[in-house]
Design a protein around this nucleic acid. Structure first.
Lengths: 161, 161
DNA sequence: GGGGCCCTACTCGGATACCCGCTGTCCGAGTAACCCAGG
DNA sequence: CCTGGGTTACTCGGACAGCGGGTATCCGAGTAGGGCCCC
């Protein structure tokens, strides 16, 4: 069970976007250069965030991505769902159906107690993700490394050329 | 993010084993026939359980698998770890290191606040898995469908040939 | 000088290869049971 | 009849293909901006 690398990229990208001028869009290429990531692939992840309504995208010159809503209203679960999709990790394949006690008219994805137990654990996971917003994470960064926003802004300003 | 199919098989197999005579081992092939699963592949999963110390295996005629300890002492986390491995789903690739504020002497798998937030959520997930034993699941099955143990035993007895 | 049109360059967006890990299969090492011959 | 050895068949165990999804890339559609021509 391995989570996509894009989740990490997406979260850092959103936090970075919150530190920049909201009046101008940020290019996927420049955002990729910031962390030395493959530009086209980061673009793909940002597209997913845009489809999910977390970012808004504008094509053409002076185009790019920007936050569609403040970081206080973006949970970690929003980002994970946008990148990984809405499907759950544990997917009951209903092996009970094929067994001697199985019945065709029962949906074992809900009836099977193994499935229920796994869903309960995964529910706790999602609840924990939903309880944390990107603003919470950003606050911790600004608290422990206060010059990060300014350094980030300066880096993008110098690379404006 | 998708969990291996083998986790579901492993849990049902362990519960089934608890219903059978502990004095005789159960073949992977017969266990696979019970749910119409690929015998060799189920065998592979049971091997993983044996390596983790959840099952004990004996080769040769009259061989097979049996529970190494009672279901009360097998948590869902034990099974998941045995099949999926000990690695976490979210793996911080330390993108911060490549950024302008990154430092070579910092382990961002622990220092990065994004990573910390994700680890916190995953910790809640694992905690929930560790809180449930296979005996708890078995108890719910026996409570709601009481004849399951007997039907299971009868099926394997008839298929003893 | 001002306005409108065209051209250019830039960005996202989706379509297209590549690669690793899960899925599935096969054959060999090892062993317990059985059979048979000898005492 | 009892015992010991050889043979057989059965099981796990790991090594070997196949395939799907994540990873990475490229090119086209669309647009904003700038330059140029005309009024």
């Amino acid at each position: 069970m391995r989570m996509s690398e894009g989740v990490e990229w997406a979260m850092h990208s959103c936090i970075n976007l919150s530190w920049l001028d909201p009046d101008e869009a940020m290019t996927a290429a420049r955002l990729a250069a910031f962390y030395e990531l493959p530009p086209a692939y980061l673009n793909k992840q940002l597209q997913a965030l845009a489809r999910a309504g977390i970012l808004s995208s504008t094509p053409g010159p002076r185009g790019g991505f920007r936050l569609a809503r403040p970081l206080e209203r973006i949970t970690l679960l929003d980002v994970v769902t946008a990148i990984e999709g809405p499907g759950e990790a544990f997917r009951c394949e209903q092996v009970l159906r094929k067994g001697p006690v199985g019945r065709e008219d029962v949906d074992y994805r809900k009836a099977c107690f193994v499935s229920q137990a796994m869903r309960q654990a995964e529910s706790a996971y999602r609840k924990e993700l939903a309880a944390q917003t990107l603003a919470d994470v950003r606050a911790k960064v600004e608290r422990h490394i206060p010059d990060t926003p300014e350094v980030t802004r300066a880096w993008f300003a110098r690379r404006r050329s």
